[in-house]
């Protein structure tokens, strides 16, 4: 079975670097190919990297509170760029203020994300979801 490729990065002008390096390590250990774009990644960079590497999923991290704004339109751009149906995950600190996570999750799903994760999600939870979505076991 060919390895699945994940493109990973922190979107927008966000410089929180620690989370993605942990995720990078965890995804590699779980047997994925990871293209880690690091911090301050634009939507275009996520898309270009996914095209060139034939990626199976884009993993968006956002910590600094502007995630929703930064993520807007990403799914549409993926469709436009020929990445139809690519898996889109988002996580980090995407809850701002006192909103319920389920509410936030819905907003991201409405934007075309397949899954959204609350703060403090264990990497293993995400890995299990990936395996499920890729029909791996």
């Amino acid at each position: 079975m060919e390895k699945k490729t994940l493109v990973l990065g922190v979107i927008g002008a966000d410089v929180h670097a620690v989370g993605v390096s942990i995720l990078n390590r965890a995804f590699l250990d779980a047997g994925f190919d990871v293209v880690n774009l690091g911090v301050m990644v634009s939507q275009e960079e996520f898309i270009s990297a996914a095209i060139e590497t034939g990626a199976d999923a884009i993993m968006v991290s956002s910590l600094y509170g502007q995630g929703e704004l930064d993520c807007r339109g990403l799914r549409e751009k993926c469709d436009e760029a020929g990445l139809k149906g690519i898996l889109l995950y988002v996580g980090g600190n995407i809850v701002i203020g006192k909103h319920e996570f389920s509410e936030v999750e819905k907003r991201f799903k409405d934007m075309g994300f397949d899954r959204a994760f609350p703060p403090g999600t264990d990497p293993q939870t995400t890995i299990d979801c990936l395996k499920e979505d890729f029909h791996l076991n």
């Binding site: 060919e2 490729t5 190919d33 095209i51 060139e52 590497t53 034939g54 990626a55």
Partner: peptide, 9 residues
């Protein structure tokens, strides 16, 4: 050229 190794074919 085109695609990383194992990438887009």
């Amino acid at each position: 050229t085109g695609g990383t190794d194992g990438g887009n074919k």
